[in-house]
């Protein structure tokens, strides 16, 4: 029987589920796993627990979310779990503040600048100093607040002349 003590094992398992668009990041790094719980089922004869994983979308239109749910399901099935449910919640709204430090480090080495500072309203990207993930220079400027995916903005480095993606605060 899977018990509450196995929740740790599930968190560990989820580390191997990656974001389909930024494969270096796991769903844990992204901060989209809100809870992992073994819930005792209500039917009479059973000491069985249902595994309930709650995830939250990064952006409302992010097509990666459905993909991520499917990947979590197949990871769980591979590991022998059958009785589980993956729920989505909108509240509280996802923020880049939930991204792990390891995640930010992985982003940088992948060539994407990590979110700088904390998420708050009226964040004006063009006024931020975003270090270039290639050369580290802070002599960079914003090209566009929108990029190749919902979560990224486009920047260019004025030092090494390379364009780069910035994972924007949200």
């Amino acid at each position: 029987m899977k018990t509450v003590s196995s929740e740790k094992a599930i968190w560990h398992l989820l580390e191997s589920v990656s974001d389909p668009e930024i494969p270096v990041l796991s769903v844990i790094d992204l901060g989209i796993i809100r809870s992992v719980l073994f819930v005792r089922e209500n039917n009479h004869d059973s000491s069985d627990h249902q595994l309930v994983i709650t995830i939250t979308p990064t952006y409302t239109g992010c097509p990666a979310m459905d993909m991520i749910s499917k990947q979590i399901s197949s990871k769980l099935e591979e590991a022998g779990y059958q009785n589980f449910e993956i729920k989505q919640t909108l509240k509280p709204a996802w923020t880049t503040d939930w991204m792990t430090e390891t995640g930010k480090e992985k982003l940088r080495s992948y060539g994407i600048a990590a979110p700088v500072g904390k998420s708050f309203n009226n964040y004006d990207l063009s006024k931020l100093k975003i270090p270039c993930p290639q050369c580290g220079s802070e002599n960079t400027s914003m090209i566009s607040e929108f990029g190749s995916t919902s979560c990224k903005a486009l920047f260019k480095c004025l030092n090494c002349k390379e364009p780069f993606d910035y994972f924007k605060c949200h």
């Binding site: 979308p57 952006y59 409302t60 239109g61 992010c62 097509p63 909108l90 090209i143 566009s144 607040e145 929108f146 990029g147 190749s148 919902s150 486009l154």
Partner: peptide
Amino acid sequence: LEQDIALTNIALDQIGQARN
């Protein structure tokens, strides 16, 4: 290109909101 991408990003956000 950047503005094409901006508008399609906005379209994607809007469709996500509509879905909700």
